[in-house]
Design a binder for these strands. Sequence first.
DNA 1: TGGAATGTTCGGCT
DNA 2: AAGCCGAACATTCC
Length: 256
Amino acid sequence: MPELPEAETIARTLAPHVEGRRVRLIRFLAPRARRGPIPLLAGCRLRRCRRVGKQVALELDCGLLLVKLGMTGSLRWRGSAGAYTRAVIELDEGWITFDDIRQFGSIGWAPEYPHSLGPDPLELSEAEFRARLARRSARIKALLLDQRFLRGLGNIYADEILFAAAIHPLAPARSLGSERAGRLYRTMRDVLERAIAAGGSSISNYVDADGRPGSFQRFHQVYGRAGQSCPRCGGTIARIVVAQRGTHFCPRCQRR
DNA sequence: TGGAATGTTCGGCT
DNA sequence: AAGCCGAACATTCC
């Protein structure tokens, strides 16, 4: 569920409720939701809530809480506890619930922002993007999913971006050349910005911190549309597996 | 019943 | 070293 636009939307909707509050404690209802040791945070002030890649960071004055949403994770302001509530972050006023059906998500603590993530797609320059692509021989779809290369893209947006840029998912990164690399950069930003404006994609159960679904799924051109017709050329959307993920594309629009 | 699903990580192979 | 693959994690849905 949560890729960059969804994490951004969750962070934006959660921020006004929690920034400036103090943490009381974190209750873990499922042990595996805790990623590594977390110090006692009682009394720590929650300075800022923002997105880091596809994670949501709660910046405290005594470190960072990093929420990985995994496949089905969600953060809700004053959410009611249900069967899939894995943790509750209690504040001096109100609380945040962390729900996660599949339990691939987790909450961890770190003294500072992680060093291992690549640049944010909305922050790096076109020149930097092109230079990074030119150094790699991996297939472009696999590279877009690699969080050390770029932070924030996931399976839905990788497919949508490659379609919008008319680039075949199996194309080796360094084979793209400056024209297609530039087009990829611009469509990447365009798709992400439009997705954020739409509040993300709600394809099964994603909602923001206030419980509102996104609407960008209405604009998906290829994701989840295998066998249906291509909105651009009328051909048939294909599905292959790349980097162990279902990959949807139009073989006619996205030539090898 | 089997396969696929918005993700990450680890081990092994080339 | 870089890239790729399979498996594992847990749960639901078709």
